[in-house]
Nucleic acid binder design. Structure first.
Lengths: 278, 278
DNA sequence: ATTGGCTTGCAAGATTACTTGCATAGCGTT
DNA sequence: AACGCTATGCAAGTAATCTTGCAAGCCAAT
């Protein structure tokens, strides 16, 4: 039985100090797992005896048992990214994959600092309302355009992947109207044609969603919905598409969930949600 | 200064028992970080006094200081995937992005159980030798084909992305010879035309590299080089391209590193390696 | 205002973990 | 064979951590 399950079982009999201690455990499980009863108690200004009693109340034989359970739940057993990142500096060539995976995980871990579910859902709703979705990407981001185009069409959405330059491009957006929307990708720098495209979308009243990296906030004009997070790799080096692809996947999953046609509201787990999709 | 750096500084003066203790720290940092000097010592059958002396030899004031340094390096401070995975069961819809990120990280963490640097480098060498690289993907993997095609062309490689069906496809591979190679993608099931394509490559002596998911080992015919790992998401649900994309990125980086034309051997860090690429 | 119950601090004692002086065993050299 | 040196175990002492009996303070009810 997990720590939190035990907490739930006795929740109605916890004293105010015990409730504060539990909050500390939830907020900083690592530090609690590695510290002492005194450490935990001092965080909320109570005596370590209170922490010891809490452990007993939760059903553990003593505080050490309580702390061992926290360690078991919150301190992972294997973590290649951390192992590499924290101990070795830049790896030798022998650690190529390890280093790559570590960087990807680090970037993914940071994603939620930049994008939250609310933003994802808001953008999803915009795309769901659209009659037609225009997709614009240049450079390596074209891979993401291919991916999201396929996902959206699989959901029954009408999409147009904007290709070509100048006149070709202009012709493709001629049919854009207020009931459409545009999804744009921008990473290293603002893509050629980004400005004119966004301005056109604005002028016809079409909503815009942009998925971007660190350059996101400086794009002009700003999109109606900007979903951005720094990508793995340093600014002037090789950068991967893992983070923006996670944003795309989150967007698509959110659309699938919000889509009334699919009657998804009754589903309870993401697994079940995903089962009905793709 | 990290634990391993300190270890390196005194490596030549470590006793046999101390060397064994260090190996335990490297192999199981979590357990050492959470345990006692006695725990560590008993792992190799020595007295805890030896562990205490090792800590002093490494420059820490005592064993507690040594253990605190191990905790600092190996026990992560924030870990969204673990936090969610270990405490809550399947999340409510409010945790969409958290769950997605957690699954991606879990899958990435497992990647190295299936693919190692040796395999990546061997495949990279095959592609470096090729005069022309054929790229075959169907379905969502087309996004990966777009990506790797761009990366390879950016490296100056001659590529052909195989499109179309039947006769169109046959015409495109007409020029394939023993000095070429083919990169194939296969995920949910063996793609149509996979077998004929691979057989043709074999018959003209072209080397093959396949990037795959769980279906990898059952592909017929087998590729000369199979790089596969399970993707994020369950077998019958929404699966993402994060893991195969990491394999692609690893392959491309390895090619960049092995490419004699770029004179990469003198570079020491992955960062520097990446700087010269893209 | 009084009383009862509960929460939490205090402090003594218990337990656990670690350090260090000393001694022994083993190994290598002469 | 003898000797010297090093590594490591032992055990006593130290330090850290935790537990629990007792008591004080607070709060709610009467």
């Amino acid at each position: 039985m997990s720590v939190l399950e035990r907490v739930k079982d006795v929740a109605d009999s916890l004293t105010p100090a015990e409730q504060l201690l539990i909050k500390q455990v939830i907020a900083s499980p690592r530090d609690i797992a590695l510290g002492t009863a005194s450490d935990l108690a001092h965080r909320i200004g109570v005596h370590e005896a209170t922490a010891s009693r809490l452990a007993k109340k939760l059903g553990y034989p003593n505080y050490a048992g309580f702390r061992a359970a926290i360690q078991e739940e919150f301190i992972v057993r294997t973590d290649p990214a951390t192992r590499v990142r924290n101990t070795l500096q830049q790896t030798s060539t022998a650690g190529l994959l390890t280093d790559l995976v570590g960087r990807e995980m680090e970037a993914l871990a940071g994603l939620e600092s930049y994008v939250d579910d609310g933003k994802i859902i808001a953008a999803a709703r915009v795309l769901l309302k659209a009659r037609r979705i225009y997709i614009f990407a240049r450079g390596n981001a074209e891979a993401l355009a291919v991916l999201i185009d396929r996902r959206l069409r699989r959901m029954g959405r009408d999409t147009v992947v904007l290709e070509g330059e100048g006149r070709d491009l202009a012709e493709q957006v001629l049919g854009m109207s207020a009931s459409d929307s545009i999804v744009g990708f921008a990473f290293r720098r603002q893509p050629t044609h980004y400005g004119p495209l966004m301005n056109h979308a604005r002028s016809v009243g079409a909503a815009s969603v942009v998925i971007s990296g660190s350059v996101g906030p400086s794009l002009v004009p700003a999109a109606d919905h900007l979903l951005f997070a720094p990508r793995a790799g340093s600014q002037d080096a090789f950068q991967t598409l893992t983070v923006p692809m996670a944003i795309c996947n989150g967007l698509v999953l959110s659309m699938a969930k919000e889509d009334p046609k699919a009657s998804l509201q009754h589903l309870e787990t993401l697994g079940q949600l995903i089962d009905t999709f793709d």
